[in-house]
Design a protein around this nucleic acid. Structure first.
Length: 439
DNA sequence: AACCGTAACAACCGCCGCCCA
DNA sequence: TTGGGCGGCGGTTGTTACGGT
């Protein structure tokens, strides 16, 4: 508000850059570096504003930019990362709910984060490619490019399958949360590794220690879905009386992850917020526990732990299927002696005085078998998308799609979806050497 | 050959967070 | 502590290229 323009735009040129201008900019930066972008145009003899120069440099002239057609691998990477990180246009706070845990993200990572995993591509280029190619392709496949979920999910009925699908959605969101949290953690660790010591001393994070800095990658355990980690006993932090302090323990950050998963846009604050986590009372009696990862929120109301009123309002908001993608825990409460969760999937009550461990999660959420989680997830997505009851929706989708690039029948959509989600989970679970650049 | 619609891409715009005086 | 400068980001727009009729 009232912000002065980046430069005096009077008399400055706009529009496409000429080769002469490019040459001037290139020559100047090669000789002097860009320094202050605002001051650069005058020094370089350009009738442009500094911002325009910076964009031209970062998006076009920079020598380390790879131009030309995106490879299949790059396309896959973009889609997968977009599925996991999203872009900032998704202002709907990403919430992750697994039985007993609810996470809210103030914002998601965006194109810049994705761009860091495609080293020679610019965020602008990736963004444009997404908007003009990939998004349309997903739409043709019947996949919502925002949620990366089959569009006919909404048509699922309230039977066991929808419950399974909801369970899987929990898991998918949980994994998204994990990846984002790790990205944030990685960056923060790098920037402020020393300041973590005290925090880490009281947390059971598998985090880089000062003696094993991230520059010396630690060989960590094979990456896997954190849901599986939970079941496999990673979560061991006790839940304190009346408050929850253990959420961070769910994030097992290996050196390898920390080394590779780096997002320049993550403002982190992850550990701090892990420590903030507390039960937030509503109306003094019934309480909702909110776990929140906070990034560099663009809106003040989105950042930080919500106050009670906000919590309640947002809670209602998220309970509204029109705003959230998933079934919600509308009646989750923390009482003095227990924490209860109610969803369409299950009712679950955990005593407050017990250690909230992987075992307790396992015993209380046993309808999801960790052993075949990924397989189940993919298969259910497959069965959902291919369910005969859904043929109307799917068929409509395809029919409307018209020339839909060969994806006009249910079985092909099934296969597309299966492959799609398999690829995402393969990325997470079995990173290939080519994937290693990303994570 | 001309026109039109669409795709692709470059560039701009406005907002935001960080930094520093 | 605060306010302005700066750089970065995502969203949007404008322009050009291309293909079909």
């Amino acid at each position: 508000m009232g912000r002065s323009p980046c430069c005096d735009k009077v008399g400055l040129k706009k529009g496409p850059w000429t080769p002469e201008e490019d040459q001037k900019l290139l020559a100047y930066i090669e000789e002097h570096g860009h320094g202050s972008w605002r001051a650069l145009p005058a020094k370089a003899g350009l009738q442009r504003c500094g911002k325009s120069c910076r964009l031209r440099w970062t998006n076009y002239l920079r020598p380390d930019i790879k131009r030309g057609k995106f490879t299949l691998q790059e396309e896959q990477t973009i889609i997968q990362l977009h599925a996991l990180l999203g872009n900032r246009s998704a202002q709907i706070p990403l919430h992750v709910d697994i039985p007993g845990l609810v996470f809210f993200f103030s914002e998601s990572e965006g194109w810049s984060a994705i761009a860091t995993h495609l080293p020679k591509r610019t965020d602008n280029e990736i963004k444009n490619y997404w908007n003009t190619h990939l998004k349309k392709r997903l739409v043709k496949m019947g996949i919502d490019p925002v949620t990366h979920k089959p569009k006919n999910d909404a048509l699922l009925s309230n039977d066991g399958q929808s419950k399974n699908a909801a369970n899987l959605s929990h898991m998918a969101q949980w994994e998204s949360a994990r990846l984002e949290a790790e990205a944030r953690l990685a960056r923060q660790s790098k920037l402020r590794s020393n300041s973590f010591q005290n925090s880490l001393a009281s947390q059971e994070f598998t985090a880089p220690s000062p003696s094993s800095p991230l520059s010396k990658p630690v060989v960590g355990p094979a990456r896997c879905l954190n849901v599986l980690k939970a079941w496999n006993g990673v979560w061991t932090k006790p839940m304190n009386e009346g408050s929850v302090t253990s959420v961070g323990a769910g994030i097992s950050v290996t050196g390898a992850v920390a080394r590779d998963l780096e997002s320049p846009t993550s403002t982190l604050g992850y550990f701090e917020n892990a420590q903030h986590i507390s039960s937030s009372g509503i109306g003094g009696s019934s309480n909702t526990v909110l776990y929140e990862f906070v990034g560099n929120s663009s809106g003040s109301s989105e950042g930080g732990i919500m106050n009670n009123e906000e919590s309640e309002e947002d809670w209602k908001e998220f309970g509204n299927s029109s705003t959230g993608h998933l079934p919600q825990y509308n009646k989750d409460v923390i009482n003095e002696n227990s924490i209860s969760f109610t969803s369409g999937l299950q009712d679950l009550t955990l005593p407050m005085d017990t250690i909230w461990t992987a075992e307790s999660l396992r015993s209380n959420t046993e309808q999801i078998s960790p052993a075949n989680f990924v397989e189940t997830f993919t298969d259910l997505l497959l069965s959902n998308s291919g369910d005969g009851d859904l043929s109307e929706g799917g068929g409509t989708e395809s029919d409307n799609g018209g020339e839909g690039s060969g994806s006009g029948n249910a079985s092909e959509n099934c296969e597309d979806n299966k492959n799609y989600w398999n690829s995402i989970f393969n990325l997470v679970n079995n990173p290939s050497p080519s994937d290693s650049a990303m994570f």
